[in-house]
Design a protein around this nucleic acid. Structure first.
Length: 592
RNA sequence: GCGCCCGUAGCUCAGUUGGAUAGAGCAACUGCCUUCUAAGCAGUGGGUCACAGGUUCGAUCCCUGUCGGGCGUACCA
């Protein structure tokens, strides 16, 4: 019997169909197994097949059964005759599956008609709040902010594409002790011209100046404290200074975000929660979660292994709240406002302890809240010597300067490779290539490893970089230009004939096409582990398969159905590449 | 002290519930532009996956220990 869902006309994502078939078969043999553990993998070595399933071995192992016998039982129940040529049992219990060429052609043809993304939207959409970027008003955005910003944006895009609801919220650092120092600096040393020119730079200068003065002179520190207290009590002058700082900073943040192509649904900074802090502290005290200790209000975690020696402060001995309290109020607000299934925090790994404490306190405070709290952390940015990153002068590298340099390098490359282009067009290409290179270099490493800052690496334009992927796209576009064909009209004109036209004879075509099919699988694993580097590697491999195909399978010089078949592959590849790059937040130029 | 992370090719790093022959980029070397864009392609060399045990059909991955490194750890965020 052919399962009707294999005949479904609207959905034809091969790995998902195989996975569904496997789940059905495995559940017949093991009715109580969690379907989530049944997963499909791409065969590492094509000699075994296109896909493999190792789940039965894992299940058998847990139950102390013979894995090969169990895999055979599953195989007896498995019905994939529409999709698979051979389904084989191998070794200790691998189930190897080789796709039917007709099934591949059908999947490609459907993709060509519907938009070639090879993805299946989730059937259980979730709502996720993503908290990322979060720059400080006092400080210019620097290289330390790019990971959070780019990673968070990418996760938001992937979640959205797969059918989830996403709320992005930029939790700006616009409140806190640094403002005492900033106000002292503002009142005593403000340079208006510098403020107009580079607001964040000027604020940083003021902060540094007062900060070092505080180290030398306790009376300066004292006046900073006083200014802070005045601000918190609503002093008009200080409040208006604070407001102006917010405004000039926001303008500058927005410029950077615009450059990076990043959008936030909300920008609710720490100050937004000021009037809720008392309530949080009151609740925690009343419920006996927080207790008084050394003049402060503290939550202890005696019963939790990793937190035993690390209590969390929710109210300082001077009566001020700190960021744990603000973050608690923030969770409450988000839960009440958006009712999310999860809140994802994209921050530096050094905040792991903070988030462990935060999540634990929230669970005690509101045990019935069903929201899942996730800390998606990333490694630090280090200098070439392995210490926390600074320039030789001890400054951080500003994000704007980094992006300028990236565009400048890209511009040199563009003019060198393609000197005939109009300089305005070259500038635009350089913008897309330069920014893309920075983003890609940031997303390519596993997020948890520390990141050694290196101009050349971050701005590199060859090898496994964004320009390599963009270049593949422009070559495809160029083919269609030369052929004077509009891609979507071309695909439309073929209609369902595409299935019959497709020829997948050479190994280059076969490899390319098989890789295309797995786009959706990769996106799912990106979300599972919150690791966009899977997508980077997938796209790099895809571009590699395409380039081999391009070098070995002439498109426009071939004729008839071969030519059309290859044009289809070109278009599908370009669509997946561009969609993948879009998910990384990277644009693609028409030419380069 | 406690907690988290890391140690994979000369360098920088991937490696998806444990899976079959551990992969890329850079650097080095050899070829390929009168042929759809050479920001490219094809190929060569390069490994005790820090070390020692354990778990099992199978370990870079899980457990234990050792060595080496990074980070965090009560009034910054």
């Amino acid at each position: 019997m052919t399962d009707p869902k294999f005949m479904d006309d609207t959905v034809f994502v091969l790995p998902k169909l195989i996975e569904a078939g496997l789940r059905e078969a495995i559940l017949k043999v093991f009715p109580d197994v969690d379907p989530e553990v049944i997963q499909l993998q791409v065969c590492a070595n094509p000699k075994f097949g296109d896909y493999q399933c190792t789940s039965v071995m894992a299940i058998a192992k847990k139950r102390k059964l013979n894995p090969r016998e169990q895999a055979q039982k599953v195989l007896d129940e498995l019905e994939l005759s529409d999709i698979a040529d051979e389904v084989q049992l191998a070794g200790p219990g691998f189930i190897n599956i080789r796709l039917k060429p007709e099934a591949i052609k059908r999947a490609l043809s459907k993709a060509a008609q519907q938009g070639g993304y090879f993805i299946q939207k989730t059937d259980s959409p979730r709502t996720a709040v993503i908290d990322f970027s979060s720059p400080n008003v006092a400080k210019p955005m620097h290289v330390g902010h790019i990971r959070s910003t780019i990673l968070g944006d990418c996760l938001a895009r992937v979640l959205t594409l797969l059918g989830h609801q996403v709320v992005t919220d930029n939790h700006i650092g616009d409140w806190g002790t640094q403002f005492g120092k900033l106000i002292v600096g503002w009142k005593q040393h403000l340079d208006r011209d510098a403020l107009m020119k580079d607001a964040l730079g000027e604020l940083e200068r003021l902060y540094r100046k007062v900060n070092s003065a505080c180290d030398e002179d306790a009376s300066v520190l004292e006046s900073a404290r006083k200014e802070l207290v005045k601000l918190q009590q609503g002093d008009e002058e200080n409040l208006s200074i604070w407001n102006e700082m917010q405004e000039v900073s926001r303008v500058q943040f927005d410029k950077v975000y615009q450059r990076l192509g990043i959008h936030f649904d909300h920008t609710l900074g720490e100050s937004f929660y000021n009037d809720q802090l008392k309530g949080v502290v009151g609740d925690l005290t009343e419920q006996g979660i927080a207790t008084e200790s050394q003049g402060a209000k503290v939550v202890f975690f005696e019963d939790i292994d990793g937190l035993k020696d690390h209590p969390a402060l929710i109210l300082k001995s001077d009566g001020g709240a700190n960021y744990t309290t603000t973050d608690l109020a923030t969770i409450q607000y988000r839960v009440e406002t958006w009712n999310p299934d999860e809140i994802i925090y994209v921050t530096d790994g050094r905040q792991q302890l903070h988030f462990k404490q935060l999540f634990e306190i929230f669970r005690r405070w509101q045990p019935d809240a069903k929201v899942e709290l996730v800390h998606t952390w990333f490694g630090s940015i280090l200098g070439p010597d392995g210490t926390p990153f600074k320039t030789r002068a001890g400054d951080t590298i500003k994000l704007n300067d980094l992006l300028d340099e990236a565009e400048e390098r890209a511009f040199k490359a563009v003019t060198e490779k393609n000197p005939d282009l109009d300089s305005e067009i070259s500038r635009e290409i350089a913008r897309i290539v330069g920014i893309g290179a920075v983003k890609y270099a940031d997303l390519l490493p596993n997020r948890q490893t520390d990141y050694v800052f290196d101009w050349d690496k971050l701005l590199s334009l060859s090898g496994n970089t964004a320009p390599y992927l963009q270049y593949a796209c422009t070559r495809i576009r160029s083919i269609f230009r030369k052929a004077a064909l509009n891609e979507s009209e071309f695909l439309k004109s073929l209609g369902s004939d595409a299935e019959n036209i497709l020829e997948l004879d050479s190994d280059f075509e076969k490899k390319l096409v098989r890789h295309l099919l797995n786009f959706g699988l990769v996106l799912e694993s990106v979300l599972e582990d919150q690791r966009p580097n899977y997508l980077c590697n997938y796209l790099f491999e895809l571009a590699g398969h395409y380039t081999s195909f391009y070098e070995n399978c002439p498109v426009l010089k071939s004729e008839g159905s071969t030519r059309n078949s290859r044009l289809i592959l070109c278009s599908l590849t370009r669509q997946v590449l561009e969609k993948g790059l879009f998910l990384l937040g990277i644009e693609t130029p028409e030419k380069m």
